[in-house]
Design a protein around this nucleic acid. Structure first.
Lengths: 219, 219
DNA sequence: CAAGTTATCAATAGAATAGTTGAATAGCAA
DNA sequence: TTGCTATTCAACTATTCTATTGATAACTTG
C-alpha cells in the first residue's frame, strides 16, 4: 500500500524541521537570530564557531525553512524565516525548561543568583507613567535592529562606565535577549551596587516583540 | 571562562528535547500519543515498527521529557507528558507545513483530493443547534480515551457497513487525528457517495482539546 | 511453581552527522 | 585586471544515531 509510504515521507519531511532544533550549535545560532539578522561571520564570532562550520549549519537551517537569507553587498544576511519560527523556538525552549530538569539546572548555573523581575504586563503599564528608565543591555547592533519602544541602549559592556548618565533616584528596568540570557541579571546587580533600584524584565526582546507590544527601530 | 561552558551545557540540554522531534519514527509515535495513551506493543503495531525499536524510541522520548509512562499490570502505558508538549508538536507540524514545501506536497499526496471543511468555531456554534451529526472516525480506543462532546464513534473501517445507522437527510461532520490524517477525508467521500452532505473538521481531536473546547470520555 | 506476555537490555553493523582543512567562488575596491 | 573579503564547496575523520538480533527481566495467569 502506498499510503504508508506517503505517510512516511510526510513525517520524514517534518523531521527535517525537527533536525534544525536538534543540535546545540544550531540552537545557539537560532537564539542569536532571534535578536537580529546577522552575517555568517558575525554569527560565527558570536557563537564561537568556525566560519565554515557556521556556514554549513546555516545552510542546514535554510534547507529546513528556519532561516531566510539575502545578499547585502559582499555579505549574506541571515534572519529567522518568520514569527512562527520564533514562536516555535520560544515554545521549545520553555517546554525544555519545564520538562527537563537538566535545562533548569544549567540555566541556574549560567544566569546565576536570580534578581528581582518585572512582568511584561507591568512594564507596559509603567511605561506610560514615565517614572521608569528602561535599558536595553544587549549589544548595540541588536538594539538598532529593533527594541522596546522607549528603551535606551546601554550595552552591558558599557554599563559600568556610563552609570553616571542615569539619574540616581530613578527606578530602572533592564532587559536583554531572554530568560536564558545573563546580561539583564548582571545589569541589575551592577545597578543595585550603585545604589539604584533595578529589576530585570521577565523574558526579553523576542518575547516582547512576539506579544505584539510596542517596538521601535529596525525596519 | 566558565560562562561559555555553562551556556553550552544549557543549549545542549535544550537540544536534547529537539532530538526527540528529529526522527520521523519518533514523530509518528508522538502523533499517535497525541490521540491517546498506549502501550509499547500497540504503538509498535500502529507505527509499523518492531517492539524493541519502539521501546528504544519511547525511552529516548521519555529521557527528553516528551512522554511519561506508568505501569498498568503487565503493560506500560506511555502518554504525552503534557499539553505544552502537545502544543509544541502541533506548532512544529504547522510550521513545517508553512515553511517546507516538501511537507505540503507530501501531505497532499497522503491525504488526497481535499474535501469541504468546517472550522472549529463554526462546528462549536452548530453543535448547539442539534441539526448536525458529528462522527469520530478514529479507531475505537482513541475515541474512548477522549473525544469531542457529542460525537459518535464511527471508526473509518466500519463506516461503510454502518451507513444505514445515519439519518439520510442529516448533515454530517467527520473528524479524525488532525490535518495530516486521511480518515476524515475518506469518511466525507464515503458519505458523499451515499448522497449525504458531509464536511470534515479542520484540524482534529488534539487541536480541539488543546483549544479548551468541550470534550467527553477518557478520564 | 511453570508458561506465557510485555518490555527492556546488550551487542552490532550500517547510515547519518559534525567539525576540520584547504580550495573555489562571488562580489567589492582600486 | 589585481587584491581583498565573505561565503561556500569538497573531501576526509571521528562521532553519534538507527534498526536488528537474541537474551533478559517484570509481571500475570493457571
Amino acid at each position: 500500500m502506498e499510503a504508508r509510504e506517503a505517510k512516511s515521507e510526510l513525517f520524514e519531511a517534518i523531521a527535517g524541521l525537527g533536525k534544525a532544533f536538534s543540535s546545540s550549535r544550531r540552537l545557539e545560532l537560532i537564539d542569536l537570530l532571534a535578536q537580529s539578522p546577522r552575517s555568517v561571520d558575525q554569527l560565527a564570532e558570536a557563537a564561537g564557531l568556525s566560519v565554515a562550520n557556521t556556514s554549513q549549519h546555516l545552510q542546514a537551517l535554510h534547507a529546513s525553512g528556519v532561516v531566510s537569507r539575502c545578499r547585502e553587498g559582499n555579505r549574506i544576511r541571515y534572519e529567522l524565516a518568520g514569527d512562527d519560527v520564533l514562536a516555535l523556538w520560544i515554545g521549545m525552549r520553555d517546554t525544555a525548561q519545564a520538562r527537563v530538569a537538566e535545562v533548569q539546572r544549567a540555566a541556574d548555573r549560567y544566569v546565576g543568583e536570580p534578581v528581582e523581575a518585572i512582568s511584561a504586563a507591568e512594564l507596559l503599564a509603567r511605561l506610560e507613567s514615565d517614572e521608569l528608565v528602561l535599558l536595553d543591555v544587549r549589544p548595540g547592533v541588536e538594539f538598532e535592529s529593533g527594541h522596546i519602544a522607549g528603551a535606551r541602549s546601554f550595552p552591558i559592556d558599557e554599563l559600568e562606565e556610563r552609570l553616571a548618565q542615569l539619574p540616581h533616584e530613578a527606578e530602572v528596568v533592564a532587559y536583554c535577549r531572554g530568560p536564558f540570557c545573563a546580561f539583564a541579571d548582571e545589569a541589575v546587580r551592577t545597578l543595585n551596587r550603585s545604589g539604584r533600584r533595578a529589576r530585570r524584565l521577565e523574558g526579553g526582546w523576542p518575547e516582547w516583540k512576539l506579544a505584539g507590544a510596542p517596538v521601535a527601530g529596525g525596519g
